[in-house]
Design a protein around this nucleic acid. Structure first.
Length: 422
RNA sequence: GGAGAAAUGGCAGAGUGGUCGAAUGCGGCAGUCUUGAAAACUGUUGAGGGUCACACCUCCGGGGGUUCGAAUCCCUCUUUCUCCGCCA
């Protein structure tokens, strides 16, 4: 959520910046300013009404104490009108505040100045590429064929017990999954991230805190009986640990990593691009979350990018990094880098990580603040990134590492797997 | 799931209808003393709205109510604790 004060001060600059997202925010922002003005004038009016009735109440108290009931009762009569007025003003104020809030929820984050214009993923800007794309053996297979051939992932079995998009990992497939999770967590904790295990279900307030609600209402699984949501990413529970918190400036950098399954309804997905592991309703992911001082958040983002590069180098997977264009940028992000691994057998790039700086956008909703050098409280910056999303890394490994003698396991994973080929 | 108790500032904990945004202690910060530190002493120390700055307003788990006036009384929800039941 954007800060009201910034909208008041920089309306035109914000409208301009939001054009990168291909939206015309003119009407929305004017609506915000109008409601804000209305809210403040109602607040002022209510405050003075309350101030008056407060002081009368005090006088009444004093009269009663001194045994002057007549005078007290005379004053009581005066408060009736004030009470009615403050009730009405209070109701109006609440309505206006709610309208204002709802409007603010609809305005996405301001893209960072480095975000390129554009509307689709084709307009994303490639900023880095590394690794050689391997020449595949004769008759190389896509991962869903390999999974079947070696009986390591069973998609049909998942359909039977749950539905499409819920695969069952078996034998070496399951073990490889577990190996990847351990390997990622180890790399992250070595880099100073604290490992954490969090609930996989969150309440509504957490959904609003990180911005999945109301923007992505239909994309989360919702358990109606208990009004809880299955997490679409560990970002939600981990970042919400800091909801309504005021941290100390010395606490920075705050760095967490956690493994969770992720649940996504993916309503509206279809076609060849969702085959196999490419798009699932349930998948595993190891996540990085950081809370940073505003002065340091972009350095932190760069640090996360470098960290992920190292992991992909160790896995020896060819990858590239994209800076997302305005049209492809997530609702809450100011700047996002996507990491993609090249899937040789599918001849396409697969997104395996998304690393973002949200600046104060999430913090404003979360009320995540810190005391700065002058003892003033101000909003912190939040960041997160996948390190990494399992299924597509798995797909990349299966496809890129296939040989005539089976699938080789990347060297760094052998000790985690306990075998070197499938 | 059943019965009872409770929820107050960073923490502990007082406060049962009126000068209570809240005693006191601890912690934090600043200062005095000290070569320095510790101890001791002094001061200071919640959040949000509003204002150029004050004033002023709101917040004692959430929501609603009673009252001129609510941390305090009533209703409701949530959470925690104790006991019982069930259980990985």
């Amino acid at each position: 959520m954007l800060q009201l004060q910034k909208i008041r001060e920089n309306k035109d600059a914000i409208i301009d910046a939001l054009k990168k997202r291909n939206i015309d925010a003119d009407v929305m922002l004017n609506g915000v300013l109008h409601l804000d003005e209305k809210r403040r004038s109602l607040q002022t009016e209510l405050d003075s009404t309350l101030a008056e009735s407060n002081s009368i109440s005090k006088e009444i108290g004093i009269f009663f104490k001194n045994g002057k009931a007549a005078e007290a009762n005379e004053l009581k009569a005066k408060t009736t009108a004030l009470k009615e007025a403050s009730k009405k003003l209070g109701d109006d104020l609440n309505t206006t505040t709610e309208e204002l809030q709802n409007l603010l929820y609809q305005i996405p984050n301001i893209p960072h100045e480095s975000v390129p214009g554009g509307s689709t993923d084709e307009d994303n800007e490639e900023v880095f590429r590394e690794g050689t794309i391997p020449k595949l053996i004769e008759g190389a297979l896509p991962h869903w064929e390999l999974a079947k051939k070696h009986d390591i992932i069973d998609f049909e079995l998942g359909v039977k017990i749950t539905g499409a998009g819920f695969p069952v990992y078996k034998g070496k497939g399951a073990r490889l999954q577990r190996a990847l999770i351990s390997y990622f967590l180890d790399k992250n904790t070595e880099a100073g991230y604290t490992e954490i295990q969090v609930p996989h279900l969150v309440n509504e307030a957490s959904g609003y805190g990180t911005g999945q609600l109301p923007d992505k209402e239909g994309q989360m699984y919702h358990i109606q009986a208990d009004d809880l949501y299955l997490i679409p990413t560990a970002e939600v529970p981990v970042t919400n640990l800091f909801r309504d918190e005021i941290v100390k400036a010395d606490d920075f950098p705050i760095k967490y990593t956690g493994y969770t399954p992720c649940f996504r309804r993916e309503a509206g997905s279809y076609g060849a691009h969702v085959r196999g592991l490419n798009r699932l309703h349930q998948f595993d992911k190891v996540e990085l979350v950081r809370v940073e001082h505003p002065n340091n958040s972009y350095a932190a983002l760069d640090g996360m990018v470098e960290h992920l590069k190292n992991i992909l180098r160790e896995l020896k997977l060819p990858f590239r990094i994209l800076r997302l264009c305005g049209g492809d940028l997530g609702f809450t992000a100011a700047l996002t880098y996507d990491f993609e691994v090249f899937s040789t057998a599918q001849d396409r790039w697969l997104e395996i990580s998304s690393v973002s700086n949200f600046e104060t956008y999430q913090a404003n909703r979360l009320k995540l603040r810190f005391k700065d050098e002058n003892g003033k409280t101000q909003l912190a910056h939040t960041l997160n990134g996948s390190s990494l999303a399992l299924p597509r890394v798995l797909a990349g490994i299966l496809e890129n590492y296939q040989t005539v003698d089976g699938i080789k396991i990347p060297e760094v994973l052998v000790s985690y797997c306990g075998f070197d080929s499938i």
